[in-house]
Design a protein around this nucleic acid. Structure first.
Lengths: 210, 210
DNA sequence: ACAATGATTGAATAACAATTCAGTTCTTAC
DNA sequence: GTAAGAACTGAATTGTTATTCAATCATTGT
């Protein structure tokens, strides 16, 4: 008898697979999903085109996995920021700052995750991603309404979606200053302003103003 | 001698050109720019593919013209709403309502104008479009700050971009309720909520709450 | 060493859309 | 009616990418 899959081989395949994922993620980060052709992914991963298909059913499959991984990281970070014992408005401010800071640091990745058109398989992941955000923000909005620091007469789902849109457009959109030509100080000012804007939008009238 | 361009012919050509523009616009309205292939445009306009190129340099050229026309209408409507003599906050509320109402009525067109990726030539138009909005909103924000109804310590450009993003995401984004399955009452409620959210974001603390 | 089997390769294929252009039809002026 | 020239046609061309697969290479157990 002959070839049997050994741990060594399994590990090597796993490593190649991971390398393809990493390469794809970095291509997406620098030019969006549109910049990640299978040929490019293969070349930068140091494998043949055909080998990509040995590790992933299709390009969409590969993209979906990259998307899922990237968004899990984002949602986790925002979720951590929300999980404080302090007042809801402080938690929300912290979370929005995390969201905004990450978006401004990797604007192309932010665009790819939030707005770049992708095929249906990847779009499913995006829906999950947005729902994850919506749920996180919604929980905190609801908590803040109970605590009295957020307006009670708002639709938390709507506020949550609008908040994501506001940050995305202000920091990543075509009118935003090119994130590259932005020194630390300017970036901080921008993040501070947009977070305050978003917070004020949901805050209860008469609450403390920062 | 022979063929000379007559008024009749000029009018006919103009009509065909216009028909192509109209067809394209309606294809964009129902499926975005992605749904408007040259073949489809030609077929629905009742001309051959080649004829499209007789009237427009390229597909991008055609798209750019459709984009420009569609956005001129939008910007004009919003500009009219802002041009009132009343207080700046009322003017802004009216304008945001117009913007939101039109977006929710034609969500696909709104997406195409605001977020769908397009080639560079069309993207230039989009930049102009966004700048037009930014300037309109900015003027009114600045006026409102002078009048005391908007926070003075905000960046009007940023607020303006964030406002467009908030409305777009809340009403047109993937988390928004399908605009089709939305009765008049629900739509009105949604528009009302998002306009109030946006207004509160820029309003001066202590100003009257609606 | 070697047979068996899986992994890898990349040129060929497939699918799709924009653009071209040689041939045809239409319009005009006489 | 007809000739000149423009307008129109749509099949063929071009360009781009995802996907396949026959051939080659690598790993394993004996």
């Amino acid at each position: 008898m002959a070839y049997r899959e050994t741990p060594r081989m399994r590990a090597r395949k796993e490593a190649t697979r991971q390398r393809i994922l990493d390469t794809t993620q970095s291509l997406v980060a620098s030019g969006g999903f549109g910049a990640a052709s299978v040929a490019r992914v293969a070349e930068e991963s140091g494998v043949a085109i055909g080998s990509v298909y040995r590790h992933f059913e299709s390009k969409s499959d590969l993209f979906a996995e990259v998307f899922r991984h990237a968004t899990e990281v984002e949602v986790k970070r925002v979720g951590e920021a929300l999980n404080t014992t302090g007042p809801a408005d402080e938690a929300l401010a912290k979370a929005l700052e995390v969201f905004a800071r990450r978006a401004i640091r990797s604007p192309t990745m932010a665009w790819a995750l939030i707005a770049e058109p992708v095929d249906p398989l990847v779009d499913e992941e995006r829906l999950r991603y947005r729902q994850a955000y919506a749920e996180l923000f919604e929980q905190t909005l609801v908590r803040g309404i109970r605590e009295g620091c957020f307006r009670p007469d708002q639709n938390p789902k709507l506020s949550s979606a609008a908040t994501v849109g506001a940050i995305a457009e202000a920091l990543v959109g075509p009118l935003s200053p090119a994130a590259d030509g932005l020194d630390r100080e300017k970036a901080d000012q921008l993040i501070h302003d947009v977070v305050r804007l978003c917070l004020q939008a949901v805050r209860a009238p008469g609450g403390q103003q920062q």
